[in-house]
Protein backbone atom coordinates (compact mmCIF):
# COMPACT_ATOMS: atom_id res chain seq x y z
CA UNK A 1 0.00 0.00 0.00
CA UNK A 2 1.23 3.53 -0.78
CA UNK A 3 -0.05 7.04 -0.21
CA UNK A 4 -1.31 7.40 -3.80
CA UNK A 5 -3.40 4.25 -3.67
CA UNK A 6 -4.71 5.08 -0.17
CA UNK A 7 -5.75 8.62 -1.13
CA UNK A 8 -7.17 7.18 -4.35
CA UNK A 9 -9.34 4.73 -2.45
CA UNK A 10 -10.43 7.49 -0.06
CA UNK A 11 -11.32 9.74 -3.02
CA UNK A 12 -13.34 6.88 -4.47
CA UNK A 13 -15.13 6.29 -1.16
CA UNK A 14 -15.74 10.04 -0.83
CA UNK A 15 -17.26 10.16 -4.32
CA UNK A 16 -19.68 7.37 -3.49
CA UNK A 17 -20.63 9.02 -0.19
CA UNK A 18 -21.12 12.40 -1.92
CA UNK A 19 -23.49 10.83 -4.43
CA UNK A 20 -25.49 9.01 -1.75
CA UNK A 21 -25.67 12.26 0.25
CA UNK A 22 -26.84 14.22 -2.78
CA UNK A 23 -29.63 11.78 -3.54
CA UNK A 24 -30.62 11.34 0.10
CA UNK A 25 -30.56 15.05 1.10
CA UNK A 26 -32.18 16.45 -2.01
CA UNK A 27 -34.42 13.33 -2.17
CA UNK A 28 -33.77 13.46 -5.87
CA UNK A 29 -31.47 11.85 -8.40
CA UNK A 30 -31.92 14.61 -10.95
CA UNK A 31 -28.80 15.09 -13.00
CA UNK A 32 -27.41 11.66 -12.11
CA UNK A 33 -27.05 9.04 -14.83
CA UNK A 34 -28.68 5.77 -13.79
CA UNK A 35 -26.87 4.05 -16.65
CA UNK A 36 -23.46 4.99 -15.29
CA UNK A 37 -24.51 3.79 -11.84
CA UNK A 38 -25.72 0.48 -13.28
CA UNK A 39 -22.37 0.01 -14.99
CA UNK A 40 -20.49 0.85 -11.79
CA UNK A 41 -22.48 -1.80 -9.94
CA UNK A 42 -21.56 -4.26 -12.72
CA UNK A 43 -17.91 -3.19 -12.44
CA UNK A 44 -17.81 -3.98 -8.71
CA UNK A 45 -19.77 -7.21 -9.10
CA UNK A 46 -17.48 -8.62 -11.79
CA UNK A 47 -14.27 -7.37 -10.14
CA UNK A 48 -14.91 -8.51 -6.57
CA UNK A 49 -16.03 -12.08 -7.21
CA UNK A 50 -12.91 -13.22 -5.36
CA UNK A 51 -14.15 -11.43 -2.25
CA UNK A 52 -14.91 -14.74 -0.53
CA UNK A 53 -12.23 -16.98 -2.01
CA UNK A 54 -9.19 -14.73 -1.89
CA UNK A 55 -8.52 -12.86 1.38
CA UNK A 56 -5.90 -10.13 0.96
CA UNK A 57 -6.43 -7.88 3.98
CA UNK A 58 -9.15 -6.60 6.25
CA UNK A 59 -8.91 -3.25 4.48
CA UNK A 60 -9.31 -4.88 1.06
CA UNK A 61 -12.29 -6.97 2.11
CA UNK A 62 -13.98 -4.12 3.96
CA UNK A 63 -13.62 -1.64 1.09
CA UNK A 64 -14.87 -4.17 -1.46
CA UNK A 65 -17.98 -4.80 0.63
CA UNK A 66 -18.58 -1.07 1.08
CA UNK A 67 -18.22 -0.45 -2.66
CA UNK A 68 -20.57 -3.28 -3.59
CA UNK A 69 -23.16 -2.35 -0.96
CA UNK A 70 -23.08 1.38 -1.80
CA UNK A 71 -23.32 0.83 -5.56
CA UNK A 72 -26.43 -1.31 -5.16
CA UNK A 73 -27.73 1.10 -2.54
CA UNK A 74 -27.41 3.89 -5.10
CA UNK A 75 -29.33 1.83 -7.65
CA UNK A 76 -32.03 1.20 -5.04
CA UNK A 77 -32.36 4.93 -4.33
CA UNK A 78 -32.39 5.84 -8.00
CA UNK A 79 -34.65 3.18 -9.44
CA UNK A 80 -36.92 2.40 -6.52
CA UNK A 81 -37.11 4.95 -3.72
CA UNK A 82 -36.69 8.14 -5.74
CA UNK A 83 -37.60 6.69 -9.11
CA UNK A 84 -39.98 9.59 -9.84
CA UNK A 85 -37.01 11.98 -9.89
CA UNK A 86 -34.93 9.91 -12.31
CA UNK A 87 -34.36 12.00 -15.41
CA UNK A 88 -34.58 9.28 -18.07
CA UNK A 89 -35.16 11.80 -20.86
CA UNK A 90 -31.61 13.06 -20.50
CA UNK A 91 -30.03 9.71 -19.59
CA UNK A 92 -30.11 8.35 -23.11
CA UNK A 93 -26.58 7.05 -23.77
CA UNK A 94 -26.74 3.60 -25.38
CA UNK A 95 -25.06 1.34 -22.77
CA UNK A 96 -24.86 -1.55 -25.23
CA UNK A 97 -22.41 0.53 -27.27
CA UNK A 98 -20.07 0.27 -24.28
CA UNK A 99 -20.81 -3.10 -22.72
CA UNK A 100 -20.65 -5.18 -25.91
CA UNK A 101 -17.27 -3.92 -27.22
CA UNK A 102 -15.83 -4.06 -23.69
CA UNK A 103 -17.01 -7.66 -23.28
CA UNK A 104 -15.52 -8.58 -26.65
CA UNK A 105 -12.22 -6.90 -25.86
CA UNK A 106 -11.97 -8.64 -22.48
CA UNK A 107 -12.06 -11.98 -24.29
CA UNK A 108 -9.40 -10.88 -26.77
CA UNK A 109 -6.99 -8.97 -24.57
CA UNK A 110 -6.43 -10.38 -21.09
CA UNK A 111 -3.68 -11.78 -18.89
CA UNK A 112 -5.17 -15.27 -18.70
CA UNK A 113 -8.10 -16.94 -20.42
CA UNK A 114 -9.85 -18.03 -17.23
CA UNK A 115 -13.35 -16.99 -16.09
CA UNK A 116 -12.23 -14.93 -13.09
CA UNK A 117 -9.48 -13.21 -15.08
CA UNK A 118 -11.78 -12.39 -18.02
CA UNK A 119 -14.43 -11.01 -15.65
CA UNK A 120 -11.77 -8.93 -13.90
CA UNK A 121 -10.56 -7.64 -17.29
CA UNK A 122 -14.15 -6.87 -18.30
CA UNK A 123 -14.60 -4.85 -15.10
CA UNK A 124 -11.38 -2.90 -15.70
CA UNK A 125 -12.34 -2.03 -19.29
CA UNK A 126 -15.94 -1.24 -18.32
CA UNK A 127 -14.91 1.06 -15.50
CA UNK A 128 -12.81 3.12 -17.91
CA UNK A 129 -15.88 4.06 -19.96
CA UNK A 130 -18.66 3.76 -17.35
CA UNK A 131 -18.72 7.53 -16.72
CA UNK A 132 -19.58 8.35 -20.34
CA UNK A 133 -23.38 8.28 -19.87
CA UNK A 134 -22.98 10.68 -16.94
CA UNK A 135 -20.77 13.09 -18.90
CA UNK A 136 -23.12 12.77 -21.86
CA UNK A 137 -26.10 13.61 -19.62
CA UNK A 138 -24.36 16.75 -18.32
CA UNK A 139 -23.62 17.79 -21.90
CA UNK A 140 -27.31 17.36 -22.72
CA UNK A 141 -28.61 19.27 -19.69
CA UNK A 142 -25.78 21.80 -20.05
CA UNK A 143 -25.18 21.96 -16.31
CA UNK A 144 -24.64 19.94 -13.11
CA UNK A 145 -25.54 20.56 -9.48
CA UNK A 146 -22.51 21.62 -7.46
CA UNK A 147 -22.56 18.52 -5.26
CA UNK A 148 -22.78 16.35 -8.39
CA UNK A 149 -19.71 18.13 -9.76
CA UNK A 150 -17.86 17.41 -6.48
CA UNK A 151 -18.88 13.76 -6.87
CA UNK A 152 -17.44 13.67 -10.37
CA UNK A 153 -14.25 15.44 -9.31
CA UNK A 154 -13.61 12.91 -6.54
CA UNK A 155 -14.48 10.02 -8.86
CA UNK A 156 -12.14 11.27 -11.58
CA UNK A 157 -9.36 11.98 -9.10
CA UNK A 158 -9.41 8.43 -7.71
CA UNK A 159 -8.17 6.83 -10.92
CA UNK A 160 -5.70 9.68 -11.54
CA UNK A 161 -4.23 8.89 -8.11
CA UNK A 162 -4.14 5.21 -9.05
CA UNK A 163 -1.94 6.13 -12.03
CA UNK A 164 0.54 7.68 -9.58
CA UNK A 165 0.21 4.50 -7.50
CA UNK A 166 1.17 2.40 -10.56
CA UNK A 167 4.19 4.62 -11.23
CA UNK A 168 5.24 4.19 -7.59
CA UNK A 169 4.73 0.41 -7.64
CA UNK A 170 6.61 0.08 -10.93
CA UNK A 171 9.72 1.76 -9.53
CA UNK A 172 9.60 0.48 -5.96
CA UNK A 173 7.92 -2.94 -6.26
CA UNK A 174 8.45 -3.87 -9.91
CA UNK A 175 4.67 -4.28 -10.13
CA UNK A 176 3.17 -3.51 -13.55
CA UNK A 177 -0.25 -4.36 -14.99
CA UNK A 178 -0.56 -3.02 -18.54
CA UNK A 179 -4.32 -3.64 -18.75
CA UNK A 180 -5.05 -1.70 -15.57
CA UNK A 181 -2.67 1.12 -16.53
CA UNK A 182 -3.99 1.61 -20.09
CA UNK A 183 -7.63 1.48 -18.97
CA UNK A 184 -6.86 3.80 -16.05
CA UNK A 185 -5.28 6.35 -18.39
CA UNK A 186 -8.25 6.22 -20.76
CA UNK A 187 -10.60 6.62 -17.80
CA UNK A 188 -8.73 9.66 -16.47
CA UNK A 189 -8.41 11.32 -19.88
CA UNK A 190 -12.20 11.15 -20.28
CA UNK A 191 -12.50 13.48 -17.26
CA UNK A 192 -10.10 16.10 -18.62
CA UNK A 193 -12.65 18.55 -20.00
CA UNK A 194 -14.76 18.12 -16.88
CA UNK A 195 -11.69 18.76 -14.69
CA UNK A 196 -11.02 21.94 -16.67
CA UNK A 197 -14.59 23.19 -16.21
CA UNK A 198 -14.65 22.15 -12.55
CA UNK A 199 -11.39 23.94 -11.70
CA UNK A 200 -12.14 27.08 -13.72
CA UNK A 201 -15.75 27.37 -12.50
CA UNK A 202 -16.61 25.50 -9.32
CA UNK A 203 -13.40 26.56 -7.59
CA UNK A 204 -14.45 30.15 -8.28
CA UNK A 205 -17.79 29.54 -6.64
CA UNK A 206 -19.71 29.38 -9.90
CA UNK A 207 -22.14 26.67 -10.90
CA UNK A 208 -20.85 24.08 -13.36
CA UNK A 209 -22.39 25.05 -16.69
CA UNK A 210 -21.26 23.92 -20.11
CA UNK A 211 -20.68 26.57 -22.74
CA UNK A 212 -23.87 26.59 -24.79
Amino acid sequence: MNVFRLTGDIAHLLAIILLLMKIWKTRSCAGVSGKSQMMFALVFTTRYLDLITNFISLYNTTMKMIFIASSYGTLYLMFLKFRATYDSNHDTFRMEFLVVPVAGLSFLVNHDFSPLEILWTFSIYLESVAILPQLFMISKTGEAETITSHYLFALGSYRALYILNWVYRFYFEGFFDLIAVVAGCVQTVLYCDFFYLYITKVWKGKKLTLPA
Partner: peptide, 10 residues
Protein backbone atom coordinates in the same frame (compact mmCIF):
# COMPACT_ATOMS: atom_id res chain seq x y z
CA UNK B 1 1.09 -17.38 -20.32
CA UNK B 2 2.77 -15.12 -17.83
CA UNK B 3 1.05 -15.28 -14.44
CA UNK B 4 -1.43 -12.42 -14.08
CA UNK B 5 -0.13 -9.70 -11.71
CA UNK B 6 -1.48 -10.21 -8.20
CA UNK B 7 -4.90 -8.67 -7.62
CA UNK B 8 -4.38 -6.73 -4.42
CA UNK B 9 -5.92 -3.48 -5.65
CA UNK B 10 -9.53 -2.40 -5.39
Amino acid sequence: RVNPPQKDEL
